[in-house]
Structures are given as C-alpha cells and as structure tokens.
Design a protein around this nucleic acid. Structure first.
Lengths: 255, 255
DNA sequence: AACAGGCAATGACGTCCATCAATCCCATCT
DNA sequence: AGATGGGATTGATGGACGTCATTGCCTGTT
C-alpha cells in the first residue's frame, strides 16, 4: 500500500478520536466512567503522538510530565545498569498505561521505546491527578491500573526468580496470547514486535537461548515459528510447561 | 531488659498511638497531610494488629478488605507456583504499605507473613479510597506509594534478570542498609529477620548459594556475619559489586 | 541483480549456580 | 546438662544456560 497516503489517513483519524469513541474505552482509563466524566477526561488528554519504530517516548531520568496510554502498536520499557546491561521491564500493548513508575520521584526510572509504529495518548499528570480528585470513578480506575502493573511485575518476578528458560518463554507466549485476545485479535497466531534480544532482555536470558527455545518448541510441536510470526499449536502443553509441569524434572521438593 | 514489662509498654503505646503522633508519620501514608486530614485518616484506620513470627496477615486468594501499614517488625510477601516453588516478592519494613497488589482484582495475589513479631495498622480499603477522594493530599500520597512499589519491583526485576549471585546479595544488603537508615537506625549493622531460605527465595538463588556468598563476603572483608547479624564493613566495594563493577568479569559487551 | 547490514539460527565450549548430602551450630525446652 | 530440631555451613558433582563464533536469512538500497 501507499505509505504516504496511509500515514495521512492515520493522522486524521487520530486527531479526531476521543476517549468516548475510542474502541479501547473498556480496557483503558475510561473504564467505568459515564458520559460527562469521559468528556472531562478528553479535555485533559492533550494530544495523540505517533512514534516510529525505535523512537523513545521518554528516557531514564526525564522529569515526569505526562502518563501515556498506548493506543496502537507496542512499546518496551527498559531499565539500565551502569555498565550497560539492560532489563526490559515490560512490553506494553494497546490499552495499557505507561509512566506510572515515575510518580514516586517525579522522574522516569526507565526508558520507553516504540517497537513498531505506535500511537500514544499523552495525559499530563498534574491534570490527571486533579481530575481524579473530582471524579471518583477515575481515581478508582487509576488505583486499579497501578495495582495491575504491580501484579504484572510480580508475575515477571516469579518468572525471573523461579522459572527455567523454557517455562519463561512458554509463560511469555501465553501472556502475549491472552493480551492479544483481550484486544479482540486472534490470540493463537500473532507477530512479535520485538527482537530475540528484547525477549532475552525481558526474560533474563541470552538471545541465543531464546532462539534455541523457539526452535525446540517448534520441533516439539508446541508452536510454529517463522521469524517473528508465531502460531501457538498446543496451548495445553504450553500451559503445563508454564505452570511448572513440563517434561523436565520437577523443581518442587518442599515437603 | 525485662521482656514482659517491655511487651506491656509496647502494647499500651500502640493502642494509644495514632497517625498524628506516630513516629513513622513522615514515611507512611500521612506524609504531607495537615492536622485535620490526619484526624480523618485516624478515624479510618480500624485497629492495630500484632502478628507473631510466622503468622500470616493474608493469604493468596483472600478477598481484599484492607491495606496494611507496617508499624514495626518485618513481613515478607510471597508468590506461589502451582508446584510449590516460592518467590518472595518483597520484605516490608516499618512505614511500608502492604496489599496494594490486591486492588486490581479485589483478591490478594500473594501471601504476607510476619518474619518476627510485627505490628500493622489495618486500613479498610473502601474507606481509604473514599477518604482519598476527599483529601487530595492523601490521594497524592497513595499514588506515590503505589508508584514506589512499582519502582521497587523493577529494581528487583533488574536483580533477578541481569545480575549474578554476588551482585544480587550485595545489592540486597545495601537496600536493607538504606531502609534501616531511613528508619533512623544504624544502617551499617543490623539483624536479618529472614532465613537464608527466604533470602534465596527473594534473590532467586538456592539457600546454599546465599550462605556461601555470606561466607565469601566475610572472607573478602566486605562484611562480618554471625548468623543473622550482619555488619557492613566496606560500603564502597559493596556498591561497586552491586553496580556491576565487582571483580568478576564485566558483563557489558554492548557497544 | 547485487550488495549491505541487521537479525536469527546453530554449534562448541566453559562456568555459574542448583542439587544432593553430610555435618555443624545454636536456641529452646526439659 | 543433655536433648532436640531447625537453620546454617561446607563440599562434591552435574547441568542449564551464557559466551563466543560461524553461517544463514531477510529486507531494503543502489
């Protein structure tokens, strides 16, 4: 398709779209809000911003100005060690909120980068907090979203601390599948927007290990892989592996 | 000192103590609140609860009723895999808030257990949310505290995903040190309230590895250990190790 | 077409840490 | 004091995964 025209169409659409006619309404901050509150929220949301692949939304150390809701595309957030080691702390799909970890110190403790062309809604934080004060439903939803972020991080903690490589990848693939379904897309077949390196940095593995695992999963009939295209073939077995009932020896020896 | 009398004194003190004369005022939810708001918060906080070592504050799957502020002692929160593997998601000292990960689904996704005799303030969640709506300062502080929890989890993610064993322990010890200082206690020497197993479950290591590391750190003059008593002897080198500049070969090979 | 360059797949090898197992220490109770 | 039991230490061994290196694939550019 023609790129220039396509870009123009997206722009026009994005300028007009407001929370109240956004298809992500039920997955994002507006959840549970009524008509008048939605209008108020729309007034607070400053603008849509489009990021190209590789572009950064904010950088580690940047002062907190806004939170961002992902409207389309995917972003990753990455923490950095002094010596350059990277930990991806999350992949963020449409409907998810970015930047809440900056509220604590008014500084972003990690960077956010688009993995593909992505759109985000910018929500100035001061205004959001102010509005949350006036709209209890919004306050409630904000608490929930922040809590969800914590739960998500805890799931990842479990993966990194207590799962082996194959359990981590199985778990990760199933998570992607679930989230795609939540967005109304087919959860069994999807395209990964991140590189093997990114996946490794997320799962605490070397990219080679991730690559080998993809191959092995394919050999074992769990999935089909073709570069970044993944097709889940045996959800039951994937679940068994992710839950710790893979064919490898059990780790549980606590009486 | 006489244990019985001491216990009695603490009890009497704790019954009377309210947020407005709590010495943790500046570390906990009341931060930034004025006199009248503090009184309102005190009305919401239902009661003090004392937990003995090993007692559980809530269990995985319990419905969310209250959040808890640690007043004294230490608790751990643990996630559980189906096959019994444990991940400690945090150690919680005085002034820290527990249970916010339950807001998302109104169910606790992990269990909380006292590592020593501990006191917590119970804060019914519904009432807290209601009050936060009326008191902007409280709402603000709640957002901050939740955000801090996320940052804390992200730090741990970095540890589990990208640090080796010695870096994890050094980092962990320094974190304890910092938090003790925040409480006005000497940060260089403290008593661990958790077992080696707990530390291992937190750091994603086997308890034997933790034990060996303690011994090695001692040999190298970084710390002194005597069971659960730890004395930090060389903060600079500990920092160097925790930051990834230990004597082990550098991990950074990203150009 | 041919080329370049980034990403992915695969192999060989080494190492860090888990596992298994045997003491050892220490606090508590009788 | 002696007994008891949970925690901690220490050693030996093996395996999972990181590291290094090569080759292959795919996309976009000239």
């Amino acid at each position: 398709m023609n790129k220039k025209e396509n870009a123009k169409v997206i722009n026009i659409a994005s300028i007009k779209a407001a929370c109240k006619d956004c298809n992500l309404r039920e997955l994002c901050l507006p959840l549970g809000l009524g008509e008048p509150d939605l209008t108020a929220l729309d007034k607070v949301i400053r603008r849509r911003r489009t990021l190209r692949k590789g572009e950064q939304l904010y950088r580690l150390g940047d002062p907190l100005k806004s939170l961002y809701a992902v409207r389309s595309g995917t972003l990753k957030t990455t923490g950095l060690m002094e010596d350059g080691r990277v930990q991806v702390t999350g992949f963020h799909l449409a409907g998810e909120l970015l930047g809440i970890d900056a509220i604590n110190t008014d500084q972003h403790p990690c960077s956010a980068e688009a993995l593909e062309t992505s759109e985000v809604c910018e929500i100035p934080y001061i205004a959001l907090e102010e509005l949350a004060h006036q709209v209890p439903g919004l306050q409630h939803q904000l608490f929930r979203v922040m809590s969800r972020e914590i739960v998500e991080d805890e799931r990842l903690l479990m993966m990194l601390g207590r799962m082996n490589a194959e359990e981590r990848l199985a778990s990760c693939l199933l998570s992607f599948s679930r989230r795609h379904e939540r967005l109304g897309v087919n959860g069994a077949a999807f395209k990964l927007s991140m590189s093997r390196q990114d996946l490794g940095d997320y799962l605490g593995l070397a990219l080679e290990t991730v690559s080998r695992l993809f191959s092995r999963f394919q050999e074992e009939g769990l999935i089909e892989v073709q570069g970044r295209h993944v097709h889940l073939r045996d959800n039951d077995r994937l679940h068994a592996i992710a839950g710790g009932n893979g064919n490898s020896r059990s780790h549980a020896q606590r009486n």
